[in-house]
Design a protein around this nucleic acid. Structure first.
Lengths: 346, 346
DNA sequence: TTCGAAAATCAAAGCGCTTAGATTTTGATT
DNA sequence: AATCAAAATCTAAGCGCTTTGATTTTCGAA
């Protein structure tokens, strides 16, 4: 390449990264030679030499349906199934989308990686070794690894509550959000027996439950213990609800996530239970699929794009030399729609 | 790092990439030291030394609303607007999602880049320099650049028809799809005056128009010249329709893309034109937003995830040494819903 | 024409890894 | 205890760029 243009490799390098240092005639020659040869500077070599890659990594996971493989929404034969709520972007997808937008805006490439199959660990290190900063969802990267990485590059953990030293976080007001929703059910709909369905095994989910139980107590009502259920594990949700139904129908079901609520909606339909007439339903996340189900889902809206954008912002700030660890906490908003009985159409 | 574990750097390297070549006791020591130091092999150095990065790039663009910046769907204050069809994933997003899934499955990291702002070119080379293969949408990378890249790494161009030597392609049956839809309007709904709205400046769009005009001619009807309009440029769509309306209401409007059809639906609502009663509407793409509008959109479904997956597959095959250039062409399916008057609900 | 500072270019030392090929260690066999 | 092949480890030469400091050009001023 350098030879082709009749200059040294240093000059080629300058042409691409510091054009002002090169005579314009030379630059032209270099660029021409590059075009002829299809030459492109190697990002690897550049990254190695500069000590920076110019890329940000985002490590997520597949919140996919029961790990049952892809439902292949594309097979041409597919019909109704292919447009079911399952194929809609979920929480992680939306957050990632926000991160894409922002990193692109700031001139960083985004490198995607995920804990897909078995070698979960392997995959992270793979990403970590290639980027200047890492965004990861809570709970998919083992704590010790995080700790190790934290010293090497800026890391922001999303939607977690575990404060690891040196790790930035971006979270939402889980407790306040769920509290507000619970209050809505109590105040606007006179609900008294509200069943909470969802896990509380992570700090984030625990906070949601706290919001619910706090609101219940404040209203002089008895919070129920959470009915254990997990998003993307339909049978757990179905089991939780079925169990409750044998004990009687509550005024409302409050779900820790939209995904679980949507499963419930489907179950209720099968059982001939009418929502919101027979029981009110509300949940948490604000994924798009919530708009497509019938009734539309009343939910606590997470600012998913903003979360992604904030994460990138934090990384870029850190890269720019701001050394302080940041903990961003974003507010939530209620989306009052049909499933709680408000009849809203958005 | 090597020192810390008391071994040479070669041994460290072997430990990470060819564990079987290292005594297990040694491996343990290395891994321990790595954990202590938070060491992660540098992807850049590795890529440089190996001549492969293990990443696939996807270069897309923002088919965003009028370049008017992000509509910020997340502001907590946002209400109805935030859940409008605009925030739904569009064609490129869905394709990208398919690519993500597949590359993850095959153990490749995906590097995202886009022609966001001005320096369109710069961005591509940036990505090209960092990946083993590139997926790009048609028309955003100048032909000469493509030609140059094609010699250096496998490239697949999506949804284009321009066959560039050495460039793989993944496309769909644009003409057949649009023909089928046109026939549906004619045969099932007795439509005679069908207006085609959309650009035909790219081969892909031109093929769609061909499908329409071919079907019209075959039915003994007169195909209209296309009313020029472009997706994500609302005013062009509105102008196209308004212009037609002054000439009279056709039996049906057939749009080159869902995005344009959705704009039209909104316009018709404002004008008090009832769809499908006063005029039938159908289009092309099958984006999710088409399910959320009222009436739901009858459209030609593109297998977007499959397109993304196929693209990755082609790249990986090429990387595996299969030297032949592949041109994958995927079939389409009609999604007959409400806007054509069929009343389907999917 | 000559001189010197500024501009342009270059040589060479890394950046952190991989991988031949060389060297040392290990361990089963004499 | 001696021998030797196999196993484990190491040395060192890159990989393609950036960047410092040195060298050469350029060009206005003397």
């Amino acid at each position: 390449m350098a030879a082709r243009a009749g200059v040294s490799i240093a000059t080629v390098s300058f042409t691409f990264s510091q054009p002002h240092r090169v005579k314009s005639a030379t630059a032209t020659a270099v660029l021409e030679a590059a075009a002829e040869l299809g030459y492109v500077p190697s990002g690897n070599a550049r990254g190695l030499a500069r000590g920076r890659t110019g890329a940000i990594g985002i490590f997520s996971f597949d919140y996919m349906v029961d790990g049952s493989g892809d439902p292949d929404p594309d097979s041409v034969a597919a019909d109704a199934a292919s447009t079911s709520a399952n194929t809609f972007p979920l929480y992680v997808d939306e957050v990632q989308y926000g991160a894409e937008t922002e990193s692109r805006r700031l001139g960083y490439a985004l490198m995607l990686g995920g804990a897909r199959t078995l070698p979960g660990e392997h995959a992270v290190t793979d990403i970590v070794g290639r980027v200047d900063g890492l965004i990861t969802f809570s709970g998919i990267v083992p704590l010790e690894m995080m700790r190790g990485f934290a010293g090497r590059l800026p890391i922001v953990e999303l939607s977690g509550e575990v404060r690891l030293e040196g790790v930035h976080t971006v979270t939402v007001e889980n407790e306040a959000g769920m509290r507000a929703m619970t209050e809505h059910l109590i105040d606007q709909h006179g609900a008294k027996r509200i069943c909470y369905v969802g896990t509380s095994t992570t700090a984030e989910f625990a906070a949601r439950y706290e919001g619910y139980s706090g609101a219940m107590r404040d209203a002089g009502l008895a919070p129920q213990p959470p009915l254990e259920s997990r998003p993307a594990r339909e049978h757990t949700t179905i089991a939780a609800i079925s169990g409750q139904l044998t004990l009687g129908m509550p005024d409302a079901f409050l779900f820790a996530s939209d995904q679980e609520a949507i499963v419930a909606l489907r179950l209720f339909e099968q059982l001939g239970v009418s929502v919101p007439r027979d029981v009110k339903v509300a949940s948490f996340d604000g994924i798009l699929a919530g708009l497509l189900v019938s009734p539309t889902l009343t939910t606590v809206q997470q600012p998913m794009h903003a979360i992604g954008r904030a994460a990138v912002g934090v990384i870029v700030d850190a890269l720019a030399g701001r050394p302080d660890i940041r903990h961003v906490r974003l507010p939530l908003a209620l989306r009052i729609r049909q499933s709680c009985g408000c009849g809203g159409t958005d």
